[in-house]
Amino acid sequence: MIIVEGLTKRFGNTVAINDLHFSVQPGRVTGFLGPNGSGKSTTLRCMVDLDHPQSGNVTFSGKQYRQIEDPIRTVGVLLDASYVHPGRSARHHLEWLALSNHLDRRRVDEVLALVGLTDVAHRRVKTFSLGMKQRLGLAATMLGDPEVVILDEPANGLDPEGIRWMRDMLQYLAGQGRAVLVSSHQLSEMALMAEELVVIGRGQLIAHESAADFIARHTTTRIRVRSPQIDVIVRAVRERGGDASILSVVADTDGALVTGMSMIDVGELAHGNGAVVHELSEVTDSLEDAFLAVTRDDQEYRSGSSS
């Protein structure tokens, strides 16, 4: 279990992280989200003692990182897949890491097989694609069979098969009882992978809750209804009063989006008014919608209007 307490990191006058608190539970994948420049990578570096925070504390099962003997046996960390000497082979990269933490060299073969790089283990890393480097990075992370796994943008550069492989792998690792913390910009992937979310903006905690709660709390669920008698349904919804409202008429055919009513209510209303229904479905916003809604004021760099 990872506990982050009151972490604050400044670079000169710039506050990168401000009094950050969160925890990462074992047995699940926790997504670490935030806009560019929000302090995610700095947080991860502070967690493993690479950057020195001005205040705060990070513990792994009660121990600070620097207090852990042979730390890669406890915490596996992948900050950037390109942090490999390009002239060194994949096997040698893993071997020096293994030696530094008293790990058996046979473990190198195991993790190479785990990530599917056995056949290219002797090749220099400069000949690797970004996807292969990501796999090598994950191999290095898993070298010590750690109980905590921390990954910064692990799906960067992976093809669709690789992304699915990474997702399955991380869920598998969490399923083994490990605490898995993953920073990623690929929100669709995060939605499929993460059970828990930590969202930060401008170095401060914005949300720390389950992914389902986060999406439910920050998005609106709408009911899409299509019918040849859409006017009847629209009138009935409006007559029901309350907070039910028609948002817009669906462009292609007679339809509408309803908010403030359940799908069952809309279906029964249509039936009660003798309207034929061609489609009745829930439209739920994505994690991306929720993320953009929550971090709207915390985007450091924002695209200009296209109009």
């Binding site: 690479l50 890669i72 942090y83 290095a140």
Partner: peptide, 9 residues
């Protein structure tokens, strides 16, 4: 960074 993460001392 990989080195110092593996050997914090």
């Amino acid at each position: 960074r990989v080195t110092y993460a593996a050997v914090p001392a």
